[in-house]
Write a protein that binds this DNA or RNA. Structure first.
Lengths: 369, 369
DNA sequence: TCTTGACACTCAAGCGCTTTAGCAGTTCCC
DNA sequence: GGGAACTGCTAAAGCGCTTGAGTGTCAAGA
């Protein structure tokens, strides 16, 4: 038992070299699997390194041109919005799984907005802190890809549609369009013709993809009373919108929420208004989580494997760091898990209140792409 | 408009020195507010640095003994458990706010268990990656404080009770005991005498503090039918426990859940069993979030400012990094926000089913500290 | 006048690693 | 038998920064 542990010094390659009786360069070659040392020496050096508990100093590595062994992840969310969200933690968890294999660190930062995010990228780049970054929540007219191109910072955009203008960036995306189409298909098969999509932030690329697809599908199928309403992703706003559309003259028979959190909030709002789910109203959550099984009725949800999504993105980034070409990979289309919140549309439902004004569109403001 | 942007080189101090016509050392002195240069030179150097968009290379800084300008944060949760949890994101957000002021990075890692967490600390230490760490979820008989002491890695334990054995670590904690006492006080004032506490992981220090306090309070007030049941924090288990205790011969009239997520799950379970809240059953969530206002009825919850909790912890770590002494700071006692899920105990409630066996304890397994 | 000493700055070493060049000692091949 | 071509290693420079030990200058004090 060590009596008084001296303020623990980290072993360096010099220590290994001394103990193994070779030069520092030999140690470097040995430990990095480079040719130039005999197998015997290599083994000896390895053993000594092991004994000493040596690990390369990332700082020194980075300084001699090897990169920082770190990737960055910025979450641009106003602090207040950071709420209940299973998606990001799962995504990060998936990312970590892949990064950990290579002993890459994940530098994480929360900022207020995209401008702040860009500032962080610039700083990280100048400070030599990260070798690449993972970008989430791509937007229409997004300044980030351009910036990352300019800095030639390897990056993977998570959730973006393929982008021709920035061939240097990889993209990992889920086929929102396909998923939306399948949801609409399901719902119309159940007889629903009045569908409201309670979407997320209007600026996000995937929000717009979903909205566009919904509109296209509605047209294709000749559904007139279908609309999307954008929100700030908050439960409060989701509930407010829900109330508004359900109080309209011809309330929808199906609601599609862009997140599980919004769906839960919307479900509660609908219940307050006396709508019974799924008898009078079907509800679909876009994003599955434990939350969906915590409410009554259990929510039917579009499920995708967010952890896997993260791993895929991380793998693409690694490929990029290894000098591979930028690629666009699509993860599996989210599957609709039918639980208890969806059912056949009840067409005989008598109009509720405020049927005064005629057959105009239901009350929401249609979001524009 | 730059025609063909050369693969952007980061400016170094050498560049500044050349442009400003001084030596590199002078630049270093100037930029670090050290004496040894005239104000005129300092200003000139600063200007040039600004123009060039220079930022110190963290790698180089770290290598010359300055530390890595990074703090670490490890979350030990089995990937599956990483669910809906507002607490951590808020905590991290608070941490970031403070770290960002000093341009410190946050290295984030998710691991499976405490052993993995220790491994990460060792690696980070050996790799020179972090200057300090923030430790969450302290446990009884926790190996981490000892390890961090041994590595002399500055650390702040978040949520731990003051620990005499590791005077090198700072601690930031909420007074769970006080909060539990106040909850029990509230509930007994409402007439509740049969209370079940659905707790989190039995190994966590704060779980044990809450359980101990509950027991002590119950004794003090002469409440016989009060118990704690530990869970894995999952909604599923919370629901299961809820069902079990509510089906018992003398079901509790009040349930206290250790997280908002569990409370929501429990609420749903209680509703399924036909218990009306708050008429027949009061429910309190330990942790407030949007979730609590998404269910019906709205959940009464113990609210604390998790963001502030994070900032406080980060500030303590900074103090430690600046060479300050380890301290123990207590954040404000969580306040009970009374919403719609708590009310007077209904004592006239007829026993439900399974009243066969006599007045034994309700069915749960009491957790032991 | 010469010494001090403060001031403003430069030099050079060093942090821990990678990497290029180079250097002995073998083996090979015509 | 004498280059050429390995093999297995060492020496040394360099990455970008900090820092302690100088160096040169000028003003004040003896």
């Amino acid at each position: 038992m060590p009596t008084r542990r001296s303020p623990a010094r980290r072993p360096t390659m010099k220590d290994i070299a001394r103990r193994a009786g070779v030069s520092e360069s030999a140690v470097s070659f040995a430990l990095n699997d480079r040719p130039g040392v005999s197998e015997a020496t290599r083994a000896r050096v390895r053993r000594v390194a092991e004994q000493l508990g040596w690990r390369p100093s990332t700082a020194a590595r980075a300084l001699s041109g090897e990169g920082a062994a770190t990737v960055g992840f910025v979450l641009a969310r106003p602090a207040a919005t950071l709420g209940v969200d299973s998606f990001f933690l799962q995504l990060v968890s998936g990312i970590q799984g892949v990064l950990a294999e290579r002993h890459l660190g994940l530098l994480f930062q929360v900022v207020e907005d995209v401008a702040g995010e860009c500032a962080v990228y610039r700083r990280w780049w100048a400070e030599h802190r990260v070798d690449g970054v993972l970008v989430v929540d791509p937007r229409a007219d997004d300044p980030r890809p351009g910036l990352l191109d300019e800095l030639s910072l390897p990056a993977v955009v998570i959730g973006g549609a393929p982008d021709e203008r920035h061939p240097g960036l990889s993209t990992v995306w889920a086929d929102d369009a396909g998923a939306m189409a399948s949801v609409v298909g399901e719902l119309t098969a159940l007889g629903h013709r009045r569908i409201v999509h309670i979407a997320g932030l209007p600026g996000l690329a995937h929000t717009q993809r979903r909205i566009r697809t919904l509109r296209a599908e509605a047209e294709r199928r000749g559904l007139a009373e279908v609309e999307s309403v954008t929100t700030d992703y908050s439960g409060a706003e989701a509930a407010a919108v829900t109330r508004r559309v359900l109080r309209g003259p011809a309330p929808p028979t199906a609601l599609v929420y862009d997140t599980d959190v919004m769906a839960v909030a919307g479900l509660a709002a609908a219940a307050e208004l006396g709508f019974s789910v799924p008898a009078e109203l079907s509800v679909v959550a876009w994003e599955d989580s434990a939350l969906c099984r915590m409410v009554t009725p259990w929510l039917s949800a579009l499920s995708r494997d967010s952890v896997e999504f993260g791993s895929t993105a991380a793998r693409e980034l690694l490929a990029l760091l290894d000098g591979g070409p930028a690629r666009t990979v699509r993860v599996p289309v989210p599957r609709l898990i039918e639980r208890d919140s969806t059912g056949p549309a009840r067409t005989d439902r008598p109009p509720r209140l405020g049927t005064a004004n005629g057959g105009t569109d239901a009350g929401g403001s249609a979001a524009d792409a």
